[in-house]
């Protein structure tokens, strides 16, 4: 994790974080929840999404008719967020927490447009309450695409709980999900999640891990 004052520097050509001004010397401040990449050990497996994986996510969202994406940025998807921002057919909304994002997505559903909530899987814990209220109480669905932090291959201690809690929480909420580890599966998984949620009027989740994010 970033210590106060530590710098956060985007990695890779596809991972330039949009910023209103040129980065200060030493990089941008670390985003909330972000991990330092100043540490050499963290760099080993933290390349983030490759561009072809980003394109598969965008293709899946387009196939599903998504026009709005709410997100709270994380590190594994750091290549995805600028691509979402740049997509001319998708409006992105940056939120302050994932529960807020879930509620906004619920409101978008009521308008007839299609929204997706993009986040790290730790965001599921923050979003459980609004998801329970909206999904179980009213039948307002939210489709989530989350990075699978803490799966096998994880090398950050702080991310282990994310992996340990994700599936039990999804199961407790009766939210169907698909663990996607191969790029060829991304597009279909996202499209299938939307098909299911618009038949069930309940939440669904696509969890991207393996080669799709590393």
């Amino acid at each position: 994790m970033c210590a106060p004052g530590q710098a956060w520097v985007p990695l890779g050509a596809c991972c330039e974080w949009p910023a209103p001004t040129a980065p200060p010397a030493g990089g941008f401040p670390c985003p909330p929840g972000g991990e330092s990449v100043q540490d050499g050990s963290a760099k080993q497996n933290e390349g983030g999404m490759r561009q072809e994986m980003v394109e598969e996510v965008l293709a899946g969202l387009r196939e599903a008719g998504v026009s709005i994406a709410c997100y709270l940025p994380d590190s594994l998807f750091r290549g995805l967020y600028p691509a979402l921002d740049a997509a001319p057919d998708i409006r992105t909304i940056r939120v302050t927490n994932e529960g807020e994002g879930a509620a906004i997505c619920g409101g978008v559903f009521l308008s007839g447009k299609r929204a997706v909530l993009v986040m790290e899987n730790s965001g599921l814990r923050a979003a459980i309450e609004p998801l329970a209220r909206m999904g179980l109480g009213a039948g307002i669905p939210v489709v989530m695409v989350m990075s699978h932090r803490g799966e096998l291959g994880e090398n950050n201690w702080w991310a282990i709980p994310h992996g340990m809690t994700m599936e039990p929480l999804l199961q407790a909420m009766r939210i169907p999900y698909r663990l996607v580890t191969r790029g060829a599966e991304i597009r279909r998984a996202i499209a299938d999640a939307f098909l299911w949620s618009y038949a069930a009027y309940y939440h669904s989740a696509v969890c991207l891990g393996g080669e799709t994010v590393r």
Binding site: S111, R133, M134, G137
Partner: peptide, 21 residues
């Protein structure tokens, strides 16, 4: 009018609706 029971969700939902319409 959508009568909802979610503390903390009302204005976010209304905002989502405003974005969609």
């Amino acid at each position: 009018s959508l009568f909802q029971q979610q503390l903390g969700c009302v204005t976010p939902q209304a905002f989502g609706l405003a974005i969609g319409l």
